[in-house]
Amino acid sequence: MNPNVIKTPFPRLIAGISIGSFGYNLALITPLAFLLTVKLAMLDPANVTKNFSIIGLTTGIIGILSQYMAGVISDRTTWKLGRRRPWMLIGSIGGAAALYGVGAAKSFTMVLLFWALAKLLLSFMSTAITALIPDQVPENKRGTASGIYGLVSPLAIMIGINLMFILNSWAIEKKFLLLGMICVVSAIITSLLIKEGKVEYQQERGKNDSLTFGEKMSRIYPSPRKYPYFTYGVLTRFFMGIAYTAASFTSVYYLERFHVSQQDLAGIVSTSMNITIPILAVASIIGGGLSDKFGRQKPFVFLAAAVTAIGILGYGFAPSIGFSYVCGSVISLGFGMFLAVDIALMSRVLPHPEDAAKDMESSTLPMILEDRLPTRQQVKLLRQEAIHYSLEYWLSLEY
């Protein structure tokens, strides 16, 4: 934790992080799980899968780059309001406006452009919220914080899908606007709960002109030879993220595999979420507490990877919608175990507290970790977490 950061009492801090994360996930993931599919089906029913894939690839790349950029900017912000709170507000307001643009768009091109803009702006909100954990959460409570943080995302998705089902008769642009407004309100509440003041950015790496080419490159991504455990962690997140994607875009899955109608889609996706999300939430909360208690992550990683793989295989061969619910539950159980230790693990291996936002987001892409070499005890700890990490990635991510 950066010693210059004003600390928020833990219960208040967790409440603020949870509320902000809830609004972000409600605004960004609910459309991915349902609304975007419906919007694309309205514009071009014959090319839903192709258009959804284009959006996923394009905005996925934008999301990775924007999260990294948002982290760098947030770390170097020295405003009186703090370095995290301003970007929560800016990101949520701009993202809400872009979401409304998605709902009101009249062509696939406009949907793609507005969704990319929403992804870009909401990355600033997400990055700022995530960075509060290494900023202000004590290390012995990060497992608990990670478990609660992991719970909020699926809870927001479940509530968002059910809300869309209840408001099924609303015009789609109104649904996007509602999600954006909830996101803005959550960012405001979080900003009021979190204590933060002006923080001076501390750069301790020397002058750029004195660095070798390799040292300059290590500011973009740490040397795999010098920091192999971090690379294992990045690979773990990457592969686990790909794995969980199988359970993320259920609306497209049901639309294409079981040929359900648009009218029935909301109810089926809502039922799936109501079954799988509580399982993920319980696994995340219990796993986070156990991680803090035993101080280990590797067993959770191994088990999470195996369980998730079983669920994905079941999804691929599911003969019915009912069986797919079971497979989704298995995936959620495995992914919940991973979420329980994900943030706690990455928080531990951050080398530079002053770069917390950048480094946390860089773990989904190349990160900037050029700290001193770890001690023997740290290597042992990092080995546990890296092996753990390298077995899975939480889809992504983002989320």
Rank of each mutant, 00 (worst) to 15 (best):
R348D: 12
A340F: 07
F335H: 08
G322I: 11
F335R: 09
Y315T: 11
C327M: 15
S320M: 05
F323Y: 10
H352R: 14
A306G: 06
G334F: 07
M360F: 08
K358N: 13
E361L: 04
D342E: 15
S329P: 00
E361T: 15
F335A: 10
V341R: 03
E361Q: 15
I343H: 02
A340G: 10
S324R: 06
S347Q: 03
G311L: 08
A318H: 03
M337N: 03
I343C: 04
A318N: 05
A357E: 05
G314Q: 09
G322K: 08
S329D: 01
V341L: 11
S332P: 05
F317A: 12
M346C: 11
V307S: 00
G314D: 12
G311D: 07
A340Y: 07
R348E: 14
S347L: 04
I321V: 14
P319G: 04
I343A: 08
S324M: 04
D342H: 07
P351H: 10
A357Y: 05
V307Y: 02
D359V: 14
G311N: 11
A344M: 13
E354Y: 11
M346W: 12
I343V: 09
M360D: 00
G314S: 06
G322S: 06
V326W: 14
L313A: 14
I321E: 00
Y325R: 07
K358Y: 07
G322F: 06
C327N: 02
C327A: 12
D359S: 10
A306P: 02
K358I: 09
S329Q: 08
V330N: 02
K358C: 10
L333A: 13
V307A: 01
I310K: 00
P353I: 10
I343Y: 03
V341H: 03
T308I: 08
V330A: 12
L339R: 05
I312W: 06
V349W: 01
G334E: 11
A318V: 09
F335S: 07
I310A: 04
S320C: 03
A318F: 05
G322H: 03
T308L: 14
A357V: 15
D342I: 09
S320D: 04
I310G: 01
V349L: 14
F338C: 03
E354M: 14
P319V: 01
G334V: 12
V330D: 12
I331T: 06
S324N: 07
S324A: 15
M360R: 05
D359C: 01
P351A: 12
F317Q: 13
M337V: 06
V326E: 11
L333M: 11
A309E: 05
C327S: 13
V330K: 00
E361W: 07
H352Q: 12
A306Y: 13
V349Y: 04
G311S: 05
P353C: 09
G314P: 04
M337K: 07
L339P: 00
E354N: 07
P319D: 09
G322L: 14
L313P: 00
F338Q: 02
S347V: 01
P319E: 07
L339I: 01
L345M: 14
M346Q: 13
R348V: 08
A356Q: 09
Y325L: 07
P351Q: 10
L350W: 00
